[in-house]
């Protein structure tokens, strides 16, 4: 299975939301990382064939996904960023409804709904109305509906928003386990989420893929550009004005700064092991990110 993104572009009037983006995705987990307004949601909507591109196309195994229509939607699962639900439905009823829309036979749907409610720890509240749920619970219902048809392509727009740390970790594990021979694309601006599970990370800015690669490859790109520097507390602010500071830690009367810089910022600075956060900040700069 191969999902090809070919020079995908979307203009809103004079504003370019997505600018000639190309990539070829094979089974695995893909993280789409970018600041708010980077074009992630627009790209995802085009990948789901619900937003018409200005130019370019998305192909699944060589076929245009728009032309595939129901055949494409049959292998697709999507969690929109603003997940809408029917407030008067219970979680189980809502999932049964979406299952019917996805054309899943009734008995099979029942089984799958039960399974997903269990996987997402919603069994206890399965018969409670969604309007009574917390943000995290609603988000889990949204993830469950996206996974109902066991999709070959699972697209999740900000799946971890509203989830508490425990829920986020559970979701990461669930997606890692789910991926296997499927394509999972998730967008987020929380670096640690993609760092934990993404095989390949696309860093997006101003509608373009700025850089992409595995977490290690991206981190490796900033090797030698990440420094730790211990400075007196009163000088910390000056360093923050002049450099991209990834972390700020107190140690007695001093502060340990993690600085992203092409050049060694000071004689006292020592190079350290880069992580994805550093790469992200390197490409975006602390202010932009």
């Amino acid at each position: 299975m191969e999902l090809t993104i070919d020079r995908l572009t979307k203009h809103y009037g004079s504003k370019i939301a997505v600018d000639r983006v190309s990539a070829t995705l094979t089974p695995g987990v893909y993280g789409l990382l970018g600041a708010n307004g980077a074009g992630k949601t627009t790209l995802m909507r085009m990948l789901c064939a619900i937003l018409e591109p200005t130019s370019g196309e998305v192909r699944l195994d060589g076929k245009d996904v728009v032309g595939m229509g129901p055949a494409y939607r049959d292998v697709l699962g999507y969690l929109p960023q603003d997940f809408g639900y029917y407030p008067t439905y219970t979680a189980a009823e809502f999932l049964a409804y979406v299952a019917a829309l996805k054309g899943i036979p009734r008995e099979q749907a029942k089984k799958r709904v039960k399974e997903l409610l269990g996987m997402l720890e919603l069994t206890a509240v399965a018969d409670k109305k969604i309007k009574t749920f917390s943000g995290g619970m609603k988000q889990r219902v949204g993830i469950a509906q996206a996974m109902l048809n066991n999709p070959q392509i699972l697209i999740l727009d900000e799946p971890t928003s509203g989830l508490d740390p425990k829920e986020r970790i559970r979701l990461r594990n669930l997606l890692s386990e789910y991926a296997g021979d499927k394509i999972v694309i998730l967008s987020t601006h929380i670096v640690s989420d993609v760092e934990a599970i993404a095989d390949v990370v696309f860093v997006m800015n101003k509608g373009q893929f700025l850089v992409h690669g595995t977490v290690q490859e991206l981190a490796e790109q900033v090797r030698g550009k990440v420094w730790e520097l211990t400075v007196p507390r009163e000088q910390a602010r000056l360093w923050q004005e002049d450099f991209t500071v990834a972390n700020y830690r107190h140690e007695g009367d001093n502060v340990v700064l993690r600085i992203i810089s092409d050049e060694k910022p000071s004689d006292g600075a020592v190079p350290c092991e880069p992580i994805l956060d550093d790469a992200y900040l390197y490409y975006f700069g602390a202010k932009e990110a």
Partner: peptide, 21 residues
């Protein structure tokens, strides 16, 4: 009401889509 519930993007990506719905 579907616009009010913001369910459109989700419904659009289901197999049967909006036409059948």
């Amino acid at each position: 009401g579907e616009w009010h519930n913001s369910t459109a993007p989700m419904l659009h990506t289901t197999k049967y889509g909006w036409k059948k719905l």
